[in-house]
Design a protein around this nucleic acid. Structure first.
Length: 445
RNA sequence: GCGGCUAUAGUUCAGGGGUUAGAACGCGGGUCUGUGGCACCCGAUGUCGAGGGUUCAAAUCCCUCUAGCCGCCCCA
C-alpha cells in the first residue's frame, strides 16, 4: 500500500465538529466589528519578504527565524527572482494595502478588520501552530482624521472587551478566582521616547547583566526590552531596579496614555497597567496591550495582542498615518471556549447536540426518487433535511434519524400514492400522517 | 531553535521479549419482514507512528526519523 500523506507539522484539519464553533466565533466577531463601523479587508497570504523586513523589523524573531520564505523564479532572464513570504501577521499587509490603494486620500479614518491564516515556522505546541488564524482589526488614517486620538485606543479596547463578553468569556475577578480575561496595558512611548529609553536600559544593564541568567544576558545585548518580561525568578530583583519606561515618556505621550486610561475608566473596562509589557514587533509605539486568559491555554496565555503603530506607514514608504490595531489568536480563543464548555459540561452535563428538522426514510428503493423530491421541497422551504436510503431497514432508519434529526418522515408505497407522509416527532413520540403540502409547517413546529 | 514526556482498534486505554495483540465505549449484523432507543447473541476492528538494528523470537530492548504534548525561547 502506498504511504499515506499527512498534514504537515504544525498544520491541522478542522472537521465539522470543530468548525461549528469557529463559525460561531467568526460570526460574533463580524457582528461586533460591524457595530463599531469596521469593514472587512482581505489581503493576500503571500507578500514580498521586504514588507515584513521593513514593517515588522529585520531583527525580530519573527522575521529573522520564523518566516516561510522562498525565492520565486524570475519570469524572464532579465528579471531578478523575487523573495516571497507567507505572511506571519496581517498588520503590515493591511498598511501596505492602505498605502497602495491611496486610502489616505479619502482623508477618512479607515476601520478595517480581517480574519485569516498566518504562518510562522515555530515549534508547535498547544495554542501554537505553524498555520494559525488571527482575527484582527486596524484603525488608521491621516492625523487629521483623528487616528491619533486616545479615544481610538480606548474604543478598540472597549470593543475587544465587548467581544469577549459576548463570547461568554468571563472577566477575571475575585468572584471567579481570577479565572477569565485580563487586559494588560502599557505605553512604550513615541518613536523618539523609545530609543532614549532603550539607551538608558542598556546603560543600566551593563554593570548587572553578568549576574543574570544566560537568556537575559543575550537579551541585554540584542533586545533589552525583552529583559523586562523575563520569567526568571532569580533575576526579578535586578529587573525591578531597572529604569521604567514611564519615566522616559515625553509630555505628549504621557498625556496620551493618561487619556486612554481615563476613557477606559469611563467605559467600565477593567485593566492593569504593566510597565514591563513589551511587544515583539518593532512597529509598536505608545499604547501596547495584551489580553491574557488562564483557561485552557497552558503556557501560551496571551489571547490577543496589539498596540499603536504611528510610524509604520512611513516605514513602508507611505504618508504619515498613525494607527492602532490588534490580533486575536483565533486558535487560542477556540481553546479557551472549549475549556469553558468543558467546565460547564462538568457542572451541568453535556448539552444536547443541535439537530436538523427532519430525516426522510424511504421504505424501499422504489421510494428513493419520491424521497429526494420531497426533500427538495422541504429544503426549498428553508428546512434542514437529510434523506435516507430505501435499502435501509426501518429500524436502521430510525436509528440514523434519531441521531441527526428531530423528526422522522416515513415514506412507503401508501404514503406516496396518498401524498401523505408518516411523521414521528422524537421528543414527544407522537406519530401522525401529514399531507405533503402542509409538511413544511408541521416540521417547523 | 533547545530540553523532557508520549505514540497499540474510530475513541479512551491495558499488555514492558515467547504461538493467532486485548477491554470498554463506539461501529456492523441478528433475535425483531412498516416503528428505533432497552436487553441478549454474533461479527469486524489494527502495517502496535515510520524505518533500521539486537535476538532463535520484538508491540515489548536499542538507534534514527516523524508527529503530538509539557517546559524554555518567542508570540497570537
Amino acid at each position: 500500500m502506498a504511504q499515506i500523506i499527512k498534514a504537515i507539522r504544525g498544520t491541522r484539519d478542522l472537521l465539522p465538529a470543530e468548525t461549528a464553533l469557529w463559525n460561531r466565533v467568526e460570526r460574533t466577531a463580524r457582528e461586533v466589528f460591524a457595530r463599531y463601523n469596521f469593514g472587512e479587508i482581505r489581503t493576500p497570504v503571500l507578500e514580498a519578504t521586504e514588507l515584513f523586513a521593513r514593517g515588522v523589523g529585520e531583527e525580530t524573531d519573527i522575521v529573522s527565524k520564523e518566516m516561510f520564505t522562498w525565492e520565486d523564479r524570475a519570469r524572464a532572464a532579465s528579471e531578478k527572482p523575487q523573495s516571497l513570504t507567507l505572511r506571519p501577521e496581517n498588520t503590515a499587509g493591511v498598511v501596505r494595502a492602505y498605502i497602495e490603494h491611496k486610502l489616505h486620500d479619502t482623508g477618512q479614518l479607515q476601520k478595517l478588520y480581517y480574519i485569516g491564516p498566518q504562518f510562522r515556522r515555530e515549534r508547535p505546541q498547544k495554542g501554537r501552530y505553524r498555520q494559525f488564524f488571527q482575527i484582527g482589526a486596524e484603525v488608521i488614517g491621516p492625523a487629521s482624521s483623528g487616528s491619533e486620538s486616545p479615544l481610538r485606543d480606548a474604543e478598540v479596547l472597549e470593543m475587544l472587551a465587548a467581544l469577549l463578553d459576548k463570547l461568554g468569556i468571563p472577566r477575571a475577578s475575585a468572584a471567579n478566582e481570577y479565572k477569565g480575561w485580563r487586559l494588560l496595558l502599557n505605553s512604550v512611548g513615541s518613536s523618539t521616547d523609545r530609543p532614549r529609553y532603550v539607551a538608558a536600559l542598556r546603560e543600566a544593564l551593563a554593570p548587572v547583566k553578568d549576574r543574570m541568567c544566560p537568556d537575559n544576558q543575550r537579551r541585554a545585548d540584542t533586545n533589552p526590552l525583552r529583559v523586562l518580561d523575563s520569567k526568571d525568578e532569580a533575576d526579578q530583583a535586578i529587573i525591578d531596579a531597572l529604569p521604567r519606561i514611564a519615566d522616559y515618556l515625553d509630555d505628549a505621550s504621557k498625556q496620551h496614555f493618561a487619556d486612554v486610561l481615563a476613557t477606559l475608566d469611563a467605559c467600565g473596562v477593567p485593566y492593569t497597567v504593566n510597565p514591563r509589557l513589551v511587544r515583539g514587533l518593532d512597529y509598536y509605539t505608545r499604547t501596547t496591550f495584551e489580553f491574557t486568559v488562564d483557561l485552557g491555554l497552558g503556557t501560551q496565555n496571551a489571547l490577543l495582542g496589539g498596540g499603536r503603530y504611528d510610524g509604520l506607514s512611513e516605514m513602508l514608504g507611505g504618508p504619515r498615518a498613525p494607527g492602532i490595531g490588534f490580533a486575536i489568536g483565533e486558535d487560542r480563543l477556540i481553546l479557551t471556549l472549549l475549556a469553558l464548555a468543558e467546565a460547564k459540561a462538568a457542572d451541568e452535563g453535556e448539552p444536547a447536540p443541535a439537530k436538523i428538522d427532519a430525516y426522510i426514510a424511504p421504505l424501499s428503493p422504489a421510494q428513493n426518487a419520491a424521497a429526494l423530491a420531497l426533500a427538495r421541497i422541504l429544503r426549498g422551504a428553508g428546512l434542514q433535511v437529510e434523506v435516507g436510503d430505501g435499502t435501509f431497514r426501518l429500524k436502521k432508519s430510525f436509528d440514523a434519524a434519531d441521531r441527526v434529526a428531530r423528526h422522522i418522515v416515513i415514506l412507503g408505497e401508501d404514503e406516496v400514492t396518498q401524498q401523505q407522509a408518516t411523521v414521528k416527532a422524537f421528543a414527544s413520540g407522537e406519530q401522525r400522517k401529514v399531507e405533503f403540502h402542509t409538511l413544511a409547517s408541521t416540521l417547523r413546529a
